[in-house]
Computed example of a mutant assay.
Amino acid sequence: MRTPLALAVDFGGTKVESALVDADGAVVPGSRHRQPTGRAATSDALEHSVATVVRDALSTVPPDGEVIGIGIGCAGPIERVDGLVSPLNVPAWRDYPMRSFVAGVAEAAGHDVPAELEMDGVAITMAEHWVGAAQGVDNVMGMVVSTGIGGGLIVGGRVITGPTGNAGHIGHVDVGGMTGENTFGSPTALEAIASGPHTVAWARSHGFTGATGEDLAAAYAAGDPIARQAIERTGEAVGRAIASATALVDLELVAIGGGFSQSTPDLFDVVRATIARHYFEFVRKVRVVPSALSGEGPLIGAGALVHRAHLLSRR
C-alpha cells in the first residue's frame, strides 16, 4: 500500500512555501521549498514562485508515496467557492484563480488530484488542533502575527469558514481606542496596529531607527524604551482583539504563530495581562499560547485540508 501524501502550499505576503505532508501531520524531510512573494511582485513573478515551489515539492515524492490531494492556505481575503484569492499585502493578485493554477501545475507534473483552498488562518488553526498546541481542545482560534495578521476558528470541534471562507479574519477586527496606519482605509483594524511592519512603523514614528521586526526584537532585548513601548502596544491590541473574539464565540484556547509573534516571549505576557482585565470571567479564562509547530505550522495546516477534510463545513 502506498503512503498517502498531501501537497501543501502556504502563500503569504512575504513568501510562498510548498511541501509534502503525511497522514500523521509531519512534513516529509527534504520536500520543503520556498520562493519570495511581496508587495512589489508582479503577477507573472508570483506565478513563477508558486509554480516553482509546487514542482520542487512534487519532485520529492518517494517511490512508495502517492499524492492524494492539494491543500492551499492563502492570506485573505479569499473566495473559497471559486478558488479565488486577493491577499491584502500582495496587490498584484485580486480575485486570482489560485486553486486552479496550483492544480494545473500539479496536473502538468503528473498529479491530477483535487485541490482545496482555505484562508491561511484556517489552515494554521487546523494544524494546531491536529498536532499542535490545541490538541484535544474543540473551541480554538489560531492566529498568525507576521507581515499580516490572520486567524481561523474551530467551534464545537468543527472548522468555521463561512460562505466565502473568510470567517476568523481577526486581523480586520477593529480595536477600540487604538489607531495604526491607514493602509487599508481602516487604521483601527488590528493588522494596521499590530502586524510586524505596522509595529515597526509606529516605532519609527517615535524615533526608532531600525527597519525590520528583527531589528525591533533585538532593540527590545537590549532594553530600548521605544521598542518596549511598541511591542507592549502590539500585545495590548492583540489581547483586546482576542478578548472580543472570546466574548463572541466562547473560546477556550488561542494559539499564536508567525514570525513577529516570536519577537519576545514578553509579548504573550502583555496579551494575557490585557485579557485578564476583561470584565467577564468567561473571557478571562481563555488560554493564549505560542504555536507548538514553529515555522512548519502553515504547511501542516495546508496538509490538514486534505488529511483532516472531515472537519471542514460541507460545501
Rank of each mutant, 00 (worst) to 15 (best):
D64T: 15
D64I: 06
E66P: 00
V67P: 06
I72L: 07
G73Y: 03
A75F: 01
I78E: 02
I78Q: 05
I78K: 02
R80M: 15
R80F: 01
D82E: 14
D82N: 14
L84C: 04
V85I: 15
S86W: 06
N89Q: 09
W93V: 09
W93M: 13
P97R: 07
M98P: 02
M98W: 00
F101H: 14
V102S: 07
A108D: 15
E116R: 15
E118V: 13
M119V: 12
G121Y: 01
G121A: 15
G121Q: 06
I124K: 00
T125H: 06
T125L: 08
M126L: 15
M126N: 04
A127F: 09
E128W: 01
W130P: 05
G132F: 11
I149W: 03
I149R: 05
G151M: 09
I154M: 12
G157E: 01
G157Q: 02
R158L: 01
I160T: 10
I160C: 10
G162I: 10
P163Q: 10
T164L: 13
G165K: 05
G168L: 03
H169G: 12
I170E: 01
V173M: 14
G176R: 14
G177E: 08
M178S: 04
T179A: 10
N182Q: 04
T183F: 13
F184T: 15
P187C: 09
T188G: 05
E191M: 02
A194T: 07
A194L: 08
A194R: 10
A194D: 07
G196Y: 09
G196F: 06
H198K: 14
A203T: 10
S205H: 09
H206W: 00
G207N: 06
F208Y: 14
F208P: 07
